[in-house]
Design a protein around this nucleic acid. Sequence first.
RNA 1: GGGGAAGUGGCGGAAUGGCAGACGCAGCCGCCUCAAAAGCGGCCGAGGCAACUCAUGUGGGUUCGACUCCCACCUUCCCUACCA
Length: 824
Amino acid sequence: MAETYDFRTVERKWQHRWERDGIYRATGASDRPKYYVLEMLPYPSGDLHVGHAKNYTLGDSVARMMRMLGYDVMHPMGWDAFGLPAENAAIARGIDPATWTAENIANMQRQVRLMGTSYDWTREVATCEPEYYRWNQWLFLRLYEEGLAYKRAAPVNWCPHDRTVLANEQVIDGRCWRCHNVVERRNLSQWFLKITDFADRLLADLETLPGWPERTRTAQRNWIGRSEGAQFAFGIEGLDAKIEVFTTRLDTLYGATFVAIAPEHPIVAQLKGIVSKKNAAAIDAFAESLKSKSELERTSLMEKAGLFTGAYAINPLSHEHVPIWVTNYVLSDYGTGALMGVPAHDERDYEFAKAHGIAIAEVVIPPGREPTEPLTEPFCEDGRLIASDDFSGMSSARARDSIAARLTALGLGKKTVNTRLRDWLISRQRYWGTPIPIVYCETCGEVPLPDEALPVLLPGHVQFTGEGSPLEQIESFVKTVCPRCGGDARRETDTMDTFFESSWYYLRYLDPHDERLPWEKAAADRWMNVDQYIGGAEHTVLHLLYSRFFYKFFHDRGWVTGHDEPFERLFHQGMVLYNGEKMSKSRGNVVGIDETADTNGVDAMRLFLLYVTPPEDTSDWTDEGISGRVRFVNRVWRACEPFFGGGASDVRALPQASTAEEKALVRAVHVAAKSAIDETTSRRFHYNATVAKLDELVNALTVAVQKAPESPATVYAAHALPVLLAPFAPHIAEELWERFGHDRSVHLEPYVRPDEAALAVDEITLVVQVNGKIRARVAAAPGLSEDAALALAMDEANVRAQTDGKQIRKRIYVADKLLNLVVA
RNA sequence: GGGGAAGUGGCGGAAUGGCAGACGCAGCCGCCUCAAAAGCGGCCGAGGCAACUCAUGUGGGUUCGACUCCCACCUUCCCUACCA
């Protein structure tokens, strides 16, 4: 009896045995229905903490539940292994990125296994391996064939010291995060994917994803930013050219008192030709002052600044001449890079006009306003038009249509739709990524490589100086021959954004060793779509939008069939805080997997993470909290220990239960089973409630073991416990199951099926209300009639006191729960 | 500025229109022990001697009945942000 539960030995033992026996492999061939549960591909940063464990524990519990409910479960794991940290380690410490990454993967793999997860490791992928990234290149070529991958010049963040492009996140206060030099915006020739072609479908199909969190769908809607409006042109005084503007408020056209353009707008060069030398110089100075600012600084942090160019634009309908300004608040890559300024009806234009003494003309008024009153703030809603020629008197909505019709008739403009979404820039001037399979030939120009030339391998033994793209400096990589003419050619030295490989990895898992295709269509037919995707909310847009884009492309090509969305249901798990803060290595505020596995045990860790909050909420890791689950694990062990070696008992047969205690104990088994199953099938995953039911069961079992160890109900409850626990605390469940005398894994058992008879209770508490207030609670047999309930209620002095001498106007009876008497 | 989620004991939370506070943590009391730890048992929203009353951010509404549904407001967290 004195044997205490040795979680370290037991957990290690079963992790090895599961690995050896391969019990978690997805078969694909069985007659079971499929279920694909996936957690977002992790970046192998080196070390896992309990925040990661929350994500994997949830996914693993779902996978284990679904297996025990009879599904053929696909539950794979892999590594998002390209990316900057590996290259930075190389620059800082001279470690080869491939070596650094491989070491991290090895360590994280160990830690993921340590968590008792049930992944099918035969499907593991690492995106930095040629066997994976060659298919990146293959997919890139397919996109290229259809014009969905193209190269064009675009403004980017450029660090002049490191001579490389930086991602927006790597620019801090306008300076390079590594060398702290001021970052410039530069026009560079870059590779893009034409995601904007899919904007309408990406937007509309969000409606086909009811299993996604509303906030994520909303975030994607906002990101795509479809806005309906009109595009039309202003003429320019003294210049045979036009400035196109986009607006959603065509009804305010007569209120335009200026035209604002971005300093990068191509018209600026022509304008400089028609204004004074002084003005032209001022424009250059203004543009120069903005050049070094990142987009972030220009748009969010700066005051609205601007400069009158000296030129005037001509309103196409009112023929008014209005000043043209260059400003920092007009974005060069949204709409046309120019807008009509209507201070009376737009917040930003109002602010700008006030600051620079520009005229304000009111053309839309709310009902009841006298247009003679001076304007104290812009009116930005719809109203009725004034001072707008023959459009005056119209409602805003009608005016938008009428003005658009007039512009269209005159050939000056038309209704259009603008999207905020921009094409996806995938070029990176970095080494540790997928080489883009393009060469530049002196005679043929830009030439895609044929499929036989794949993979374009990343060269090894590279010197990292931190300056510029390492690939550019490797002559043996750059120098090649043109596949078309055989002449001299140079390879593209840009590599792909790592979001490229994570946009399709869920398909590679299904056919990970295929050497002819990225995946066999039959595999996708069997397994897609991903039934449940689990990951953090930080990916509400980027990864999830890119993956949707790719999947629609695959669908159009016929490589996948069915719903053209990859992820049927999506779940965002919450963060884990420690000491009230996000875990962070630099602040020493981390609870590591290795430490907690060693001090508390993995089962206790998993149970705590599931139990502490509903999975979507932020939870706090506390030492007290985890010790509560350690106690629970030990209680489970002690409650089951008396039955070791007593022979395996069939938990599928209900035991004889005669006393109220026995019935309650058997019921507790089925209540817990019902909770686990309901939380799984409802996709709510509130296993915190399930673990609480398991607590109640173990509490009842602990008492029963003391009072009635021989009772069939006690024996039954003890033997059922490992089955109930298996998805959540897989190690102790397996150990108990073996000690009970079973020779097959508990994880291959069917889950306990909730039984109606076992769930039924002998006695219910009927709540008696008078006018909605509780006046009595009476014990009764379930299923009693309304009349019988009324009779019981009227036996209660409290009920009589409230009803005597009054007429009962209405009775509400909820069977086995409540009787409400409404009296006059 | 826009959007999303959420406000329940000392704390984490349970209760998806029907007994508010399950379960756990912390705390208190007891048993066991020479003692401690562990374990086991009990108490644990507020007021009141009590019967009872009050109590789920605030104010309204719907309903026989609201933590739950609707409206407004307050607070907190997350995302996003000059998108014309």
